[in-house]
Write a protein that binds this DNA or RNA. Sequence first.
DNA 1: TGCTAAACGGCGGGGGTCTCCGTATCGTAC
DNA 2: GTACGATACGGAGACCCCCGCCGTTTAGCA
Lengths: 194, 194
Amino acid sequence: MRADAQRNYARLLAVAEEEIALNGADASLEQIARVAGVGSGTVRRHFPNRHALLAAVFRDRVENLCAHARERVGRPDTRAALLEWLSAVTTSAATIRGLAMALNRDKAADAEHGHCATTQLAEAGEPLVRQAAEVLAPGVTITDLIALITGIALATEDHPDPAAEANRLLGLAVTGLSPLDGRIRRPEPASGAS
Amino acid sequence: MRADAQRNYARLLAVAEEEIALNGADASLEQIARVAGVGSGTVRRHFPNRHALLAAVFRDRVENLCAHARERVGRPDTRAALLEWLSAVTTSAATIRGLAMALNRDKAADAEHGHCATTQLAEAGEPLVRQAAEVLAPGVTITDLIALITGIALATEDHPDPAAEANRLLGLAVTGLSPLDGRIRRPEPASGAS
DNA sequence: TGCTAAACGGCGGGGGTCTCCGTATCGTAC
DNA sequence: GTACGATACGGAGACCCCCGCCGTTTAGCA
């Protein structure tokens, strides 16, 4: 890769990050080119489509989350290990503008490209789910959890405090919105009352 | 309202519904105008912005859901009443293309316009939540439930069977992904096994 | 220092949104 | 039945964006 290409690539990545933080996942590519001081063709050469740009911008963040997951595998308290990681993912997805949408989108383009962000996250988180299977509701997969998290992040996008709200909703989903179900009982059957 | 205006309004609504079903919430307004056989100005006169169009297109659906909620108020099994309604909302949000996104977007523009779809839904569903408070996790509000549902619907948008998947995720969130929490216990501690 | 492949920039086509205004049409009053 | 005013219509124009393409510049090597 030529030196000027490297420069432009780095510069574009930095500008894109800012621009996406400012205007969300569908920030203007032209605008990014303009701010970076390069032609629009250069953007498209480095990143053939928006998906590629998003993937590149969020790569580090996603890898951090993956690492975060890996270092939690094998912990004695499997439930806490999983929940902490889920909370971390939720916080990132809710805080970093555009990340949730990026994750949501590439689920669609997942089949073709192979190693998208969601797949990476899923692979990294799967061991945590497996080792916590005992304390998980039957049928829960890592894919479900990621879907739920990205959904929550999308839904809390324009909340005053997205991270807090998203984590609160995640907590509710984890312990159950209405856990009573025959299989699972409430703490006190509360004799009588309405 | 003049007769031709009424005709165009109805026609636009019908075309918009199809077009949104086909291309999602950000279907082209120009395209809608073209298919309806009117000028683009006419679209923008009847619906100043995309939000207004979406609101109009989904008005009936949302009102149905509201009615659905109202007729469930007062039922003996408050939990079932609420859960059935939540499931109905989830199915609609997941099935009707663009609805989830519309619900998600107008939460933002809610403050200014006053009576958006989400507010309507919230007002209609609130009694169901109140009367089921006993069997709900503490702190759960109707707003939370709607946020969660729209999130789930957004996240399952491009699944082969969105309604089924969305309802499954909703079910998991209702009974709890990992209900064990001190307050709530699992059915069988499952002696041994993997 | 010269050459070549790689990277650059920006033009042109297609499409979308939004505003505005001249014109056609409806509904009514006579 | 006609004439008129209000109302709605249609589309042109300005602006932005995405995308593909190609002539030109430049980095890196011999």
